[in-house]
Design a protein around this nucleic acid. Structure first.
Lengths: 225, 225
DNA sequence: CGCGCCATTGACACGAGTCAAGACGCGTGG
DNA sequence: CCACGCGTCTTGACTCGTGTCAATGGCGCG
């Protein structure tokens, strides 16, 4: 959950050598800073992006101005392509969590590739369907679970993003971002984290509040209630 | 919201006459009764369906057994295709709300069409992207709005499904189904409906509790808070 | 006629949001 | 090198929305 279902493998796996060469030419590498917006809600989609290096969050802003994060992007993830495919405005926003390197793919070129390469199309359909699955889980979780369960669920799934080696998982997200992932507010999130600390399930090492997962199994059990 | 982004137009618009002929041959009409399951979570996907006549709800069951409805299907909607595209099990279930007529499209045939017809692929990609937009709205709504606002939002969007002529909108869903759409429980939903009745925004005519929308504009305003 | 499903209402408890204040570390500038 | 200020994290007190449990009412169907 919260992972990208579609990565740059899409291109490396599906494109012909000739198309790959063209790909090199048509795409552009961008360097951007932490906190910069890659695109934002209602903006026109000139193309999409591959995250070559760094991290990003994808989120939507509700009617009241509160943001809901629905995906965290890591190295290799493709994002921002939906409005290219259905020719609409961006329904969401993307912000960098670290200084990052992006590969920009122009909309027209992506569409041209899709039109001429059926394998790519099929792979994309598959990816979008997997993304659909993910959304179902997210939506059901948000609608049905308590905040405590949601926090545990989110922390558990973040292991996929922030595992160092095989054991340690440290999560450098801010409290505000974590709250936006869980669909709650900072204060409530902090209280839950406090409890989890007392239960020896997590710990916070540094002053920034980086979370260290101590007992992933117990976390998983609490998440699945 | 809660609408299908993908309908049978996909086929009528994109298929060649020859493919349409083949389509006639490969697909099967099914008649099924209210409350029957078309498919269910974790089931194998043998194909997908077009709703020729009737209504259906698509939902996912959470860890605790509570169901969350995320889409209502009307005449012409295509559904149940995601696991065909990504070769997995069904992540959701489909249940008929009325006696219905379905067109079954075998998985292999759908895949064959997609492989040989790029227009169809592109149209499908577009539809899935629009579906993605819809999910973002749903998720943000569920995570951020109060129950009252959610009920108003849901009722408002249901106008698209249950409009008779141009003015009257009557909603024949059960309280349980409405609650499952709003991400709440029957009792709470009933209380909100009670208040909306007092505020002259809706009324319930028959004993089954069919809801009649009196003031769609006010409803919309309450939904957008 | 009576059973059962569904809608409705009431009483109650608790989870979670809001508001306000304090703690802590970090960076900037004097 | 220290002090101040800012941003983030944390905690407390309080309120209220919402879920749970339980009981009643109404209508249709067998």
């Amino acid at each position: 959950m919260f992972n990208s279902a579609i990565t740059q493998d899409l291109f490396t796996d599906c494109l012909t050598p000739k198309e790959l060469a063209q790909f090199e030419i048509e795409t552009t590498v961008l360097k951007m800073k932490k906190r910069q917006l890659v695109f934002s809600e209602n903006g026109i989609a000139f193309g999409c992006y591959i995250l070559l290096q760094g991290k990003a969050k994808l989120f939507k802003t509700g009617d009241l101005g509160k943001t809901q994060i629905f995906q965290l992007c890591c190295k290799g993830d493709l994002f921002g392509f939906h409005p290219v495919l259905n020719n609409r405005k961006y329904p969401d926003s993307a912000e960098l969590l670290e200084d990052s390197e992006l590969l920009f793919i122009p909309a027209a070129f992506l569409l041209q590739l899709l039109k001429s390469n059926n394998d790519l199309c099929m792979a994309m359909l598959s990816g979008l369907s997997t993304e659909f699955e993910d959304f179902l889980c997210q939506e059901t979780m948000l609608a049905q679970k308590s905040v405590r369960e949601r926090v545990c669920t989110v922390l558990y799934y973040l292991t996929a993003h922030y595992k160092n080696g095989n054991v340690e998982v440290s999560i450098p997200l801010s409290r505000a971002d974590l709250a936006d992932l869980c669909g709650t507010v900072k204060e409530t999130l902090v209280r839950v984290l406090h409890d989890l600390k007392e239960e020896q399930i997590i710990s916070t090492t540094d002053a920034r509040g980086t979370i260290l997962l101590l007992d992933v199994n117990k976390l998983k059990r609490l998440a699945e209630v």
